[in-house]
Structures are given as C-alpha cells and as structure tokens.
Amino acid sequence: MTEEITEDTYRLYTDYVSAGAYCLKTRNGFRIPALVLDQWHEQGFAILRTNTLADKYGVGRKTMWNTIRGAIDNGFIKEVGRTEEGRAMYVPCLQRGVEWRAGREAQV
C-alpha cells in the first residue's frame, strides 16, 4: 500500500494517531495506534509482537499485552485474522479519528 497520501488521508491518519494519544493514557498506549497504522499502511495488516515491543519500550510482556488490549477495548485496533504462524493480524479503526475530530470541532 505505498500509494501517495492525499491531504485528506493525511488528516485522517493524524486524527487517528492524535485520538489514540488523547484517549489511551497509559505509558505506551499512544504508540499502539501509530504502530498499527504504519504496518497496515505498508502491508495491509499489523503484527504486534508483545515481547519485542516490551523490550523496546522497557516494560514487561504482560504490561505491553495490557496496553494492546486497551487499544482493542477502546476501539482503536481490531483483529482481522491470524497468520499461518498463529499471530494476530490487526488493522486500525480509523473511524476513531473521525469521531475525535468531530468532538474537537464541536467544542469550538
């Protein structure tokens, strides 16, 4: 998915990542939507390796899984299947960015 990003797509993506940072208030919660968006944009889905992410961000595996679970429970990412190795494949729920922008604009 390496097509050129339009201004509208850029706004959608930044709204989505901003909404994640605003709503997922754990130490690393803001990272999950951005990671999923990046991988999804490149390959059509994201694989979140809990151990790798935990090591990278200096937290325990269980803490990282809880962070990922928070992104799922809050509707920022969803599982769409499994790889042949059994790993969950995730996609971003971009609608969360649309909702976030609408809420911000309603406050003005």
Rank of each mutant, 00 (worst) to 15 (best):
Pro92Val: 05
Asp55Leu: 06
Pro33Ser: 08
Thr26Met: 10
Glu79Met: 15
Ala102Met: 09
Thr2Ser: 13
Asn51Glu: 12
Glu42Cys: 08
Pro33Met: 06
Gly58Asp: 11
Val17Asp: 06
Trp65Phe: 08
Ile72Glu: 15
Arg61Cys: 04
Pro33Ile: 03
Gly29Met: 11
Leu37Gln: 14
Leu48Gln: 02
Lys56Ser: 11
Gln39Gly: 10
Gly86Asp: 05
Met1Arg: 07
Met1Ser: 13
Val36Asn: 12
Ile32Leu: 10
Ala102Pro: 00
Phe30Ile: 02
Ile77Leu: 08
Ser18Gln: 08
Tyr13Lys: 01
Gly29Ala: 07
Thr6Gly: 03
Lys62Trp: 01
Phe30Asp: 01
Leu24Val: 02
Leu12Met: 07
Asp15Val: 00
Pro92Lys: 06
Glu4His: 13
Glu99Thr: 03
Tyr10Arg: 07
Glu79His: 06
Val98Arg: 14
Leu48Asn: 02
Pro33Tyr: 09
Glu4Phe: 15
Asp15Thr: 00
Ala54Cys: 07
Arg82Phe: 13
Asp8Trp: 09
Ile5Lys: 07
Ala21Met: 08
Phe45Met: 01
Val59Tyr: 02
Val98Asn: 03
Ile72Trp: 14
Leu37Asn: 14
Arg101Gly: 01
Met64Tyr: 04
Ala19Glu: 04
Ala21Thr: 01
Arg82Met: 12
Cys93Val: 14
Arg87Leu: 15
Leu24His: 07
Thr52Arg: 14
Arg101Leu: 06
Ile72Arg: 14
Glu42Lys: 11
Lys25Pro: 00
Ser18Phe: 04
Thr52Gln: 13
Phe76Trp: 10
Phe76Ser: 08
Arg27Ser: 12
Asn28Leu: 14
Asp38Asn: 13
Met1Leu: 09
Ala88His: 10
Asp55Cys: 01
Glu85Asp: 12
Thr83Phe: 11
Ala102Val: 05
Arg82Cys: 04
Ala21Ile: 04
Gln43Met: 12
Thr63Ser: 12
Lys25Ile: 05
Gly103Pro: 03
Thr26Ser: 15
Leu12Tyr: 02
Leu94Gln: 06
Glu84Tyr: 09
Arg61Leu: 02
Phe76Gln: 07
Cys23Met: 10
Glu42Phe: 08
Arg101Ser: 03
Glu79Trp: 11
Glu105Lys: 10
Leu48Glu: 02
Met64Asn: 05
Ala21His: 09
Cys23Ser: 11
Asn28Glu: 07
Lys62Ala: 12
Glu99Ala: 06
Met64Thr: 04
Ala34Gln: 14
Gln39Phe: 07
Thr83Cys: 09
Arg11Phe: 03
Met1Asn: 10
Ala54Asp: 10
Ile32Lys: 09
Thr83Arg: 06
Thr67Ile: 12
Val17Met: 08
Val59Pro: 02
Val108Lys: 10
Tyr57Gln: 02
Thr2Leu: 14
Gln95Lys: 12
Tyr22Thr: 00
Arg27His: 09
Arg69Asn: 11
Arg11Asn: 05
Ala102Arg: 14
Leu94Tyr: 15
Gly44Ala: 05
Ile32Trp: 13
Asp15Arg: 05
Arg31Ala: 07
Tyr10Cys: 00
Gly44Trp: 02
Gly60Phe: 00
Ala34Met: 11
Ala54Trp: 03
Met89Tyr: 03
Ala34Asp: 13
Gly97Thr: 05
Thr6Arg: 03
Asn74Met: 15
